[in-house]
Simulated assay, not measured.
Amino acid sequence: MQHGVGLQNTNTDELFAWLHLASIPHFGAATYYKYCQRLNWKVSDFFSASQTELLNLGFNSSQVEAILHPNLNVIEASLKWIKETNNRFILHLEDSAYPPLLKEISSPPLLLFGYGEQNKLIDLQIAIVGSRNPSISGKECAKVFAHNLCQCGWTITSGLALGIDGFSHEGALQAKGTTIAVLGTGIDNIYPKRHRRLAENIISGGGVIISEFPPQSPVRPENFPRRNRIISGLCRGTLIVEAALKSGSLITARYATEQNREVFAMPGNINNPLAKGCHYLIQQGAKLVTCVEDINEEFSDLKFNTEVTNSTKSEKNSIESLATDRLLDSVDFEATPLDIVAERSGITVSEVMSQLLEYELRGLVTAVPGGYIKLGEK
């Protein structure tokens, strides 16, 4: 029997039972395993017990009610959703296609609803997350790191949120790599709405969009931090690009630490509030990252595309030599006005404009409101 690729290839009764199980309030993987080990139960056994038996086993009244009288509207909505097109799937905890790395965490979701290539969920993944309102250099770093990590062989996993998440997905797509988005909403509710086109591109590019929340699930703020354990749980490591001290990205980093996964953080300007979260993580033991090799070298058991890493090193060396150029050295990593660049470099404004245009075409600087910023290494 083939699992998780659509209702036509799945045991409908089994899927119904798992959907029923997932609808029980405050019931997760740990509780499921407890009863299965203690009583040698299978999924169907939860629904053949009597009210008295369930209460004696420790289920509370609301759980017993959900077991004995399931919300058929919710279950039927999921069954209808999966039948509508052939690129949808539902994976349950005991499914052979369920991502093994995710199954290792303390609270894996009982169900994963998804669009796209479900087999990509077992690919080698690294998470990239960060601020929803990143700086221009933060956006660029997210795209460049995602692009280069994809070329090394990684799949990029993030949360489809505005900011760093979205730019990470875009960087992966630009590299023609695979990217996975984990929603904090029901699987039929792409959020934010402005990322619907990005979501379509992820699917058409061979990626995956998943959620533990079934169709028609209401949007709840508390579900967004909860989905972060899935992002980190799918991945060998998590890279934080920019984050304030109080942010969802630090929650993802905490989950990664608890899951015994690697945590990486990108340093920034000490006066930038969005760098404070990364600096805190580095102080707590996260690895400071300035290039993809800083990440790859932590995984000695893996083989990466050496042509890409060698090319990245060559570009880094080339840019480091350019950094001695007095004009490039006059541009900060924050917005630098044109007249300040001219004053620092001792070059006329017209020559500065001409030279910076060349540097912009080479990806070394970018024009922003108020001047130019240095982009650093690719």
Rank of each mutant, 00 (worst) to 15 (best):
N87F: 14
F89K: 00
I90C: 05
L93M: 02
L93N: 00
E94R: 05
D95P: 06
D95M: 10
S96P: 14
A97T: 11
P99L: 09
P100C: 06
E104Q: 15
I105W: 06
P109R: 01
P109F: 00
L112T: 08
F113E: 02
G114A: 04
G114Q: 03
G114P: 01
Y115C: 08
L121S: 01
I122V: 14
I122E: 06
D123T: 13
D123W: 10
L124A: 13
L124K: 15
I126W: 02
V129G: 04
G130I: 08
G130V: 09
S131F: 06
N133K: 14
P134K: 08
S137K: 15
K139P: 04
E140D: 14
F145W: 12
A146R: 01
L149W: 04
Q151H: 13
C152E: 12
G153C: 13
W154M: 13
T157H: 12
S158P: 07
S158E: 08
G159M: 07
G159Y: 03
L160V: 11
L160H: 02
L162A: 14
G166H: 06
E170D: 10
E170S: 11
G171Q: 00
A172T: 06
Q174P: 03
A175W: 12
K176H: 15
T178Q: 10
T179K: 00
I180V: 13
I180D: 01
V182P: 01
G186C: 05
D188G: 03
N189M: 14
N189P: 08
N189I: 14
K193W: 04
R196C: 12
A199W: 05
N201M: 14
N201E: 15
I202R: 00
I203Q: 02
